[in-house]
Amino acid sequence: MIAHIAEACFWLFRYLERVETTARLINSNQIFILDGENFSKEPWKPIIKINGHEKIYESINQGHHYANDAMACQFLTWEEKNPESIINAFKNARENARSIRDTISSELWNALNGFWLWLTLGEGRDLYNKNKHLFYEAITEQSHMFRGIFYCSMRQEEAFEFIHVGMMLERALQTARVLLIKMEDSKKGTEDFHSRYWLALLEVLFAREAFLKCPHYGLTRASVAEFLIFENSFPRAICFCLKQALMSFSRIRNYVNIDHYTKSEIELSNLADHLEHCSKLGYINLELNTHLRELIEKMENIFVQIQVDFFYHHFDDLYARL
């Protein structure tokens, strides 16, 4: 397929995964911070950090105002200067979709475009003003719908696999980022505080009930990290996502009919192998945050390498784009 079409496919669900994570983070945080015991002076700081642009936030909202719900929600949702606000991330997703309308199914395009109209023509804003919980829940539900349409309305061939690789790798990256910042942010507190804190983290990643169904995991920092990194049966755990991405890679190899492994596939395979064979206890109990930072760095390199391997023949403006 044409390289730039493949690239747009690759990016489509990367943006949508980000939109979903942001919506989930806001909804979960809004509820969490209302409990008296969970009081924090800057309750929105970790969320802005995960979203990635705290400098812009601080420059827009002179002083920090990490305690102000309205400012934080505005920044994370509507702020045009925030490249990762929901509106901007979704705009990018739609732009990508528009450039590949002939590749994706029209059902998928219609759903994406319908949601864009909902967000921009007033209805979404009205719901946001009326009830934020329902607004963010609507975004989550739309995300499920986009994925559902994608899975059941497109042929599973090259374009499908590029979309899928983007979705899975981005999801692994999001899980790692959320986990890292929540780990860094977890403070000393009572056992009860921690149990609520870890449950709220799991909730962001749709993992609360799934986690509780595995009784061998106690509700501790180590178990939560183990589940979100290593649990092969859970679709948002990092290992699961990496393996899914690898499967798509091998199918792409077949479609493209190349007889060698691309560099990105080798790097990804090494990363997945490392996680598969490392000592989980060591990984989690010794320098977990360092491990997560390294993991995020490796994944970011893989994203760059994918661009090099499949979408660009030259390095020109590649780094600028990212």
Binding site: L34, D35, G36, E37, N38, F39, D192, S195, R196, L199
Partner: peptide, 8 residues
């Protein structure tokens, strides 16, 4: 207000 959690 600071209200005690019932979550646990």
């Amino acid at each position: 207000n600071r209200i005690r959690s019932v979550e646990e």
